[in-house]
Design a protein around this nucleic acid. Structure first.
Lengths: 144, 144
DNA sequence: TTACTTGCAAACGTTTTGCACGATT
DNA sequence: AATCGTGCAAAACGTTTGCAAGTAA
């Protein structure tokens, strides 16, 4: 049930001076093993299957560390912006299924010319971009 | 001090069966007359200059109506996603100054080929996209 | 043994709701 | 006159912090 990233994330935590505990492992394995964006409460409920004594506060604190290490990212959507998901490798963008929530990653390198065009028109110095797509994954297209 | 959109927004509210009151006018004029994204609390403080008896609850309720009518939109950013700003006309995206918060709008029509490419690679049926840029406006570039 | 980590409880800030009064239509 | 809108107070909600006990190193 655990996925490769889980081991890497635990190693990263350890390598940054954080201790390896049952609570942290449960949180890490839960988030690393899910292809959907999860809220702290989602993580709390799911991870308690692995570690029943888990407290919600520990979920918040662990997510905070994972985010600082760049292992997970916050997902913004119409429903709110309190959910987290595994970060892609390098500069990747998210594509979320509006039905099941499954996430896919893609690269948006083709954006550079657009950026340059915008910069020219607006006079802004564009430093960051933020692109996210919503749609239906192949499974959910067939179901509907 | 009021701007053209303020009158249109008030007309839109009225046309949808909502009454025109001093409190609503103050909120509408504040948001319509500001080029930055404002939190409900920001609006509350700014709008009290126009209507001192204003309550924070009314700000929330008015922003809710303006959002439902598509006149304002919620702005998502690293600092949170509780701020609102005037919606652009048609399908426009936001470009925010990281220093002063000033917003500019731009169209992202050039995105369609990227969408099609992503759809082909991932198998998703892409329905919506969400693009936001961050940078420095021309004024803030000179100041730094 | 030491310092970090944990869960509980409480605090905190934001947003929503209940309600009686007031204002718009 | 009827209905909608308002502000206040309280409640609800998600998140953070203080702390004593427990655990990894």
């Amino acid at each position: 049930m655990d996925s490769p990233p889980a081991q890497q994330w635990l190693a990263a935590l350890h390598g940054n001076g954080y201790r390896l505990t049952g609570a942290r492992s449960a949180v890490v394995e839960t988030v690393a093993g899910t292809r959907r964006a999860l809220t702290p409460h989602d993580v709390y409920e799911a991870a308690r299957a692995r570690y029943p004594a888990l407290g919600l506060v520990t979920v918040y604190r662990t997510l905070e560390k994972l985010e600082q290490l760049g292992l997970i990212q916050r997902v913004h959507g119409q429903g709110g912006c309190q959910a987290f998901i595994s970060s892609g490798i390098g500069h990747q963008h998210l594509l979320l299924c509006q039905n099941c929530g499954r996430a896919a990653y893609f690269e948006g390198d083709d954006l550079d010319p657009l950026m340059a065009s915008i910069a020219g028109k607006t006079g802004y110095n564009v430093r960051e971009h933020w692109l996210q797509l919503f749609g239906l994954c192949s499974d959910c297209q067939q179901a509907n």
